[in-house]
Amino acid sequence: MPSTPAIIRVIASPQSWVEGEALRQLEAAARLPGMRAAVGLPDLHPGKGAPVGAAFASEGVFYPFLVGNDIGCGMGLWCLELPARKARPERWAARLDLEGPWEGDAEGMLASLGAKPCGFEASLGTVGGGNHFAELQRVEAVHDPAAFAALKLESDRLLLLVHSGSRGLGEAILRAHVDRHGTGSLTEDSAEAHAYLTRHDQAVCWARANRATIAERVMRGVGTAGSPVLDVCHNSVTPKAWNGQRHWLHRKGAAPSDQGPVVIPGSRGALSYLVQPLGDGAAHAHSLAHGAGRKWTRTSARERMRERFTPDALLRTSFKSHVVCEDRDLLFEEAPPAYKAIDRVVGDLVDAGLVRVVATLAPVLTYKTRSRRE
Score class of each variant (00 low, 15 high):
317 T>C: 09
261 P>S: 08
326 E>K: 15
323 V>T: 15
310 T>H: 08
259 Q>W: 13
312 D>G: 13
249 L>F: 02
279 G>A: 11
299 T>Q: 12
328 R>P: 12
340 K>D: 00
259 Q>L: 15
264 I>E: 14
322 H>N: 10
303 E>D: 13
243 N>S: 05
317 T>Y: 03
353 G>N: 07
309 F>A: 02
281 G>A: 10
255 A>F: 11
333 E>D: 02
333 E>S: 01
258 D>I: 11
269 G>D: 12
300 S>P: 01
344 R>M: 07
348 D>S: 11
308 R>S: 05
309 F>V: 00
263 V>D: 05
303 E>I: 12
296 W>M: 12
306 R>T: 08
296 W>H: 14
327 D>C: 14
275 V>H: 08
263 V>L: 05
270 A>Y: 00
349 L>P: 10
334 E>C: 03
322 H>R: 15
329 D>L: 08
307 E>C: 08
279 G>Y: 08
351 D>V: 03
322 H>S: 14
252 K>L: 09
316 R>F: 03
261 P>T: 03
339 Y>F: 14
337 P>N: 05
321 S>W: 06
347 G>C: 06
319 F>Y: 07
339 Y>H: 07
321 S>Q: 02
272 S>A: 15
292 A>E: 00
319 F>L: 01
282 A>H: 12
339 Y>C: 04
299 T>Y: 02
294 R>I: 10
289 A>T: 14
240 K>W: 10
340 K>T: 05
282 A>C: 08
329 D>F: 04
342 I>C: 02
295 K>N: 09
257 S>N: 07
348 D>P: 09
238 T>Q: 13
279 G>I: 14
315 L>R: 15
316 R>P: 01
314 L>H: 06
256 P>W: 13
329 D>P: 09
311 P>R: 10
273 Y>D: 04
268 R>M: 15
263 V>C: 05
247 H>Y: 08
336 P>S: 08
333 E>L: 02
345 V>T: 10
346 V>I: 07
299 T>I: 04
260 G>E: 13
337 P>D: 00
348 D>M: 11
275 V>N: 10
255 A>G: 14
330 L>W: 11
304 R>V: 02
305 M>C: 01
306 R>N: 06
305 M>S: 05
257 S>G: 15
303 E>K: 13
296 W>Q: 07
252 K>D: 11
271 L>P: 13
329 D>V: 00
288 L>C: 09
326 E>L: 15
265 P>M: 08
326 E>P: 12
332 F>Q: 07
333 E>F: 01
260 G>R: 11
281 G>P: 02
287 S>L: 04
244 G>S: 05
274 L>P: 10
326 E>S: 14
240 K>N: 04
268 R>T: 03
326 E>W: 15
281 G>I: 04
340 K>N: 02
275 V>W: 06
346 V>M: 01
296 W>T: 09
359 A>C: 02
265 P>I: 10
279 G>M: 07
259 Q>R: 15
329 D>Q: 13
280 D>A: 10
328 R>M: 12
290 H>D: 08
309 F>H: 12
319 F>S: 01
340 K>Y: 00
336 P>F: 06
257 S>T: 01
306 R>L: 01
236 S>N: 13
274 L>K: 08
